[in-house]
Write a protein that binds this DNA or RNA. Sequence first.
DNA 1: GAATTAATTAAACGTTCGTTTTATTAATAT
DNA 2: ATATTAATAAAACGAACGTTTAATTAATTC
Lengths: 214, 214
Amino acid sequence: MARTAGSDGERTEAAIRDAAVQLIARHGFEAVTMRQLAAEVGVQAAALYRYFPTKEDLLHTLMREHMVELAATWDNARPDNDDPVARLTAFAANHIRFHVERRHATHVSNMELRSLSRDNLTSILKLRTAYEKELRTILRDGADSGVLEVDDTGLTAMAIIQMITGVIVWFRPDERLSVDEVTATYLAMTMRLTGARPNTEDRHVRQDAELRAW
Amino acid sequence: MARTAGSDGERTEAAIRDAAVQLIARHGFEAVTMRQLAAEVGVQAAALYRYFPTKEDLLHTLMREHMVELAATWDNARPDNDDPVARLTAFAANHIRFHVERRHATHVSNMELRSLSRDNLTSILKLRTAYEKELRTILRDGADSGVLEVDDTGLTAMAIIQMITGVIVWFRPDERLSVDEVTATYLAMTMRLTGARPNTEDRHVRQDAELRAW
DNA sequence: GAATTAATTAAACGTTCGTTTTATTAATAT
DNA sequence: ATATTAATAAAACGAACGTTTAATTAATTC
């Protein structure tokens, strides 16, 4: 046999990406074989090579598009407001929601960096670093203007990102918590971690009201 | 050739473990081959099978001993004091130091769970869950007695563990920060995240002194 | 010093891997 | 209709994989 009735390149490529994300997230990149992936798509292994030149290129594509999409949602959610607390709130809320909604793709992007060649790794890390820099800038602005308490900007940025990305390790949809509830709780922890409070208030008489501000 | 002069089973087994941790941390379990590991140790691949019946059993052994060791250091560091803030401080300090000092083994234990069979996975998760329960208990006690501000015990426990274990993702020895400095900063963030303060003070007039309390 | 045990090598086993080549059919354009 | 292009299957490639078997030498025991 050869070309099958109703076959369509665009649909097949999308099916490959989807199946690849699911399989790699579950078993790890090295453990997933091209034959296994092809079987999941319902096609022969050779057909995959019409869409991706190598297995590693497939992984790189998945990661790159995940990062580009993350940057795009942040660009879209970025507030005009230049209040650091508002920006931190928007950043954390966007980050949490984005990752909770893309658990598998996030798993792939976070866990499979080791399987990339030098050049592919560099291109992903460049995107990642640019994104992290956004948070560092917010934290520094907040620390400078006194509305945030941050000892070490870079270290706090890494801690926050680790903490809120870590959602995907344990969160499963259809459990006791909804995406909104999880987002709200992690947001509250992020704010508490950075000592965020309304910048119109006295710095030393902050109430616990901040926890219900969003 | 066969048995080599000066060969010693105990030394060889230790060398296999050490090399395995380094290689698996760097390349991932699936990507490391038994021949590659053997070459690192300076021995033929078949020799590895005198010490570990299968590749997966080697991984399981590394993980199990990592977790057992973690539980042991916590047992040793656990304060007699039953003040939740003191216990949280001790827990976080022990956790951070343990992981910073064992970056590679931690990477293996955190990233390679997917390569374990059902039974082996279950045995590791049992150890991990028991350890995490220690933190949840501390947080609940602290929330009950009013010295900690914790919205959701389980969720906060996961967030803290993710945050402070995340140290190993970016921390490299011989960089700008020492282990002590990193430990202190993460400890401060943990305390701020949980709203920890000396339990003799008024809850609504907390100062920033907490940041310098350890 | 002979027998036994511990530690290892060398070679091979069957399997599976990522990938390539070639042929074949479906859809599209002319 | 015919030619061309798109999408696949089928089969094979050499390489590498985890593991086993058998032989061999070093160290230890009696």
